[in-house]
């Protein structure tokens, strides 16, 4: 059980993390590198000279981008190690676990871990002005936990009171408010920051949806192959 759980999660995480990393390198990384030209002061927004929107941000950096691929695969494996036990727990209690259901599990995982905190703490482009990182991390973790509990209540209960509680859990972190900086001193143009945030979320949605589908697939197929020798023996 444990081995099957871990291997299925790692396969799903590696596959989804690899695809997410490739999408990140194509769609997010150039925006990030563009922002770093402003973060480092190489370009100055509203400086003396008008700055072209089209900058050479450099191509692939094998070391840096290789690390991104490795860490993306690790991160998605971490997601899968939490997502798959939840899926398996639901399966034991009578939920079917098709690839299509896996897709929904993954999309909800995206809503919980990326969209819920991102609603008030948008994915940050390098150089953005922000409050202290420790306080932001606490708010981020609290928001993720609240959204996770809310998702469970919405999906698996049939009571109005639980649904109202879920809505309260979803709204509360944003009504309380995410930690904000004292002043907005970010040097990066808003056009770049907006594009970065939406692309980061878009890649996250694709990565997570695939993660859920892959997790369901590897979980089911590993169950089939594991039971095959037993049937041949009988």
């Amino acid at each position: 059980m444990f081995t099957r759980l871990i291997t299925s999660a790692l396969f799903a995480g590696a596959a989804a993390g690899l695809i997410a990393a490739l999408l990140q390198l194509v769609f997010v990384q150039p925006v990030l590198l563009h922002a770093e030209l402003y973060e480092s002061g190489q370009l100055v927004h509203f400086g003396a000279a008008e700055i072209s929107a089209h900058q050479d941000v450099g191509g692939l950096d094998p070391m840096r981008d290789g690390l991104s691929v490795v860490f993306s695969m690790l991160l998605y494996s971490g997601y899968a190690l939490i997502l798959l036990p939840l899926m398996s727990f639901a399966e034991q209690r009578g939920q079917s676990l098709s690839g299509k259901n896996g897709l929904i599990w993954g999309a909800v995982g995206f809503l919980v871990i990326q969209f819920a905190p991102g609603f008030s703490l948008a994915p940050e482009v390098p150089g953005v002005a922000a409050a202290d990182v420790g306080i932001r991390q606490i708010w981020w973790a609290g928001t993720v936990i609240a959204a996770g509990i809310a998702a469970g209540l919405i999906a698996f209960t049939r009571s109005w009171i639980a649904w109202v509680g879920a809505a309260a859990l979803l709204l509360a972190p944003h009504l309380i408010g995410a930690p904000e900086p004292e002043s907005f001193v970010g040097p990066v143009p808003p056009e770049i920051a907006a594009l970065f945030a939406v692309r980061a979320l878009g890649v996250g949605l694709i990565g997570w949806s695939l993660l859920g589908a892959f997790a369901a697939y590897f979980w089911r197929t590993s169950g089939v192959t594991a039971s095959a020798p037993q049937t041949s023996k009988a």
Binding site: A21, Q24, V28, Q29, L32, R64, D65, L67, S68, F71, S72, L75, Q114, P117, G118, L121, A122, P123, E124, V125, P126, A130, V133, R136, Q137, W140, F196, A200, L201, V203, G204
Partner: peptide
Amino acid sequence: DAAHDVRHANGFPCH
């Protein structure tokens, strides 16, 4: 440093 770009791209508070 190693996970920097992945943190930014996945919406984690970074700096």
